[in-house]
Design a protein around this nucleic acid. Structure first.
Lengths: 331, 331
DNA sequence: GACGCCGGTGCAACCGGTTGCACTGTGCGA
DNA sequence: TCGCACAGTGCAACCGGTTGCACCGGCGTC
């Protein structure tokens, strides 16, 4: 079915090497030979088999894109950016959905079987040992949206979640809120822990009254359920939600309880996903610079193709407040 | 770096064939040999190279998952289901983002270079010739969410968009709406054309007054912009929107104009994406049976692995109304 | 005119597997 | 006891490419 090197060589009247070199950038072929080969290839509809060549070159240009987050709408933006950025660099994303997989070893085995050149783990909720498993298997790996660390085990590209927590607390203080709450995502996620830690720390420093609780997941339903519980008791004046989708759930709960945002309760999210800007939501939030993070992640994995032993580093991008309609104006 | 067959064979004291057969289900190996091989493999951390074996078997278990739709939140659900369904069957999705690609030939070349066993084109807005290009290149292909046809050029799995249009019209009529409108997605998309055709046809049959217009894209912003325009003139009593995300944009526009849904204007969407069920949206919509469509798409592509010449067929799944809060009760 | 250099080419080995075929040894029935 | 079937094994060729090396011819230089 598929046309091979050999057939092209025969038709062009040259050796297989000549054909191979014609399709290898930088190889030495005369203009005459190249012309003959290209003509024959065009007639036959030949295109080189990338997998066969990977056998000798050791490069597949396949990158494992691993995530467990297929329910948070921001991940559609994440996948869009990753696939485009990878494609621009001639790399191909092999998508791995970890939703019902807890065992890192299985993913490692699968991605090794496919000789991926590298792996990008895109998740803020996966435990760090997941990425480490790839490194131990000798596969270049970067953990996007991973936990900040001064001496990381693997390359990490992301944000400083502790600092985001502080930033949220400062912002709420500026708006004159005195009793505030943190409505976090899953308690075991490092991102939740860090955001909480920064928030609590800064509240203490500034002198805000601060409570906290957790939703089961980074999801609308979980955010809504938790906020329904909170408003039924004695809610804080404002909440820092662990994530935008959680915020939107919370927003829904607050309005359903007959309260108004930001008049009765203020809300600040994190991520700045597209939906946060929708006019019927208009969420004030902390913007995570997605495309920078993703661009840097791909850059890093590309670097590692040539320097697999590159010492792990953690690159952190600054976040900023995006002002919309869910916090009252500075007092 | 990677452990090979040969090393395992040496360590186990057997031939390379024996090792190969140990890892080939159904091959004939004695228990004794198998044990030796498995021990050696475990010690060395061997896992077979799927790409190398694909050279002789002709199977990579790679499936190209091609889409141009990375902005409609329903596609996160689509990708989630596709990746999980493929993984369950031992297949690996190679994700291709067509967002800035208009030339089918490029995608064909790329996916041929990677010897994918098959391709799934997941899009309701891509022209049909896109999927046809894969078939012509000899790659098994199914077009998910493609256009219904009695004699399709490629395998199509999806819904009957014309019938959805009729269903929307009938539903609006039942609720006593007399002047209705179709707010479609991009005019050139076949899904838009078909939904419109069915809607207009049924309106005429029933005797509803019917107008229509189009948004630039299946997006919140486009739906909102178009509905803002409509409410500024003399809006219909109810609208059938080409898609849920468009409906949510329209909903936002209607409320911003100071009108109420469903009291002043009724709205029905299409898809039933997760967000449509969020309590702060609560969109009445036509449910597209996503997981059935995706399950059937994967089944079909799997069938074609063994029967590439399977005559193209079109499988259509029934849609149903999901009643929520954006249409008034039956009169 | 002899020499050396060098771009261009083909041969053959190799990448990591699979598989048809021939051969061996074992167990069973006659 | 012999013959036979058959499971188990290894050899070697092959899948579709790449690449080190040897070789060839043409050119510029002395």
């Amino acid at each position: 079915m598929a046309v091979t090197l050999r057939e092209v060589a025969q038709r062009a009247g040259v050796s297989r090497s000549a054909v191979s070199r014609t399709f290898t950038p930088g190889a030495s072929v005369s203009a005459r030979t190249r012309a003959k080969v290209e003509e024959a290839a065009a007639e036959l509809g030949y295109s080189p088999n990338a997998l066969a060549s990977s056998l000798t070159t050791g490069r597949t240009k396949l990158i494992g894109l691993v995530s467990n987050n297929f329910h948070n709408p921001i991940f559609l933006e994440v996948f869009d950016l990753f696939t485009r950025t990878l494609q621009e660099r001639g790399l191909k994303p092999l998508l791995v959905n970890l939703t019902d997989e807890t065992e890192a070893a299985n993913s490692v085995r699968m991605l090794r079987a496919y000789s991926v050149d590298g792996v990008i783990v895109a998740s803020s909720t996966l435990p760090p040992n997941f990425a480490v498993a790839f490194r131990e298997a000798g596969i270049p790996v970067v953990h996007s949206f991973g936990r900040r660390s001064d001496a990381p085990d693997v390359h990490v590209i992301g944000i400083d979640n502790v600092e985001c927590g502080r930033m949220a607390a400062r912002t709420l203080a500026e708006r004159g809120y005195r009793t505030v709450g943190f409505l976090g995502g899953p308690e075991e996620a490092t991102s939740t822990q860090d955001r909480l830690a920064g928030f609590v720390e800064e509240c203490a420093r500034i002198g805000l009254n601060c409570t906290h609780s957790f939703a089961d997941a980074y999801s609308f339903a979980a955010g809504r359920a938790e906020m329904l519980r909170l408003v039924a008791e004695s809610p804080a004046e404002a909440y820092f939600c662990g994530d935008d989708v959680l915020s939107i759930g919370a927003l829904s709960a607050i309005r359903e309880a007959g309260l108004r945002v930001p008049d009765n309760i203020g809300l600040i999210g994190l991520n700045d996903m597209e939906m946060a800007g929708w006019e019927n939501i208009s969420l004030t939030t902390i913007k995570q610079p997605l495309s920078e993070i993703i661009g840097a992640s791909v850059d890093r994995v590309v670097q590692m193709l040539d320097a697999p032993a590159l010492p792990p580093r953690c690159d952190i991008f600054r976040c900023e407040i995006v002002e919309r309609g869910t916090l009252r104006a500075p007092s």
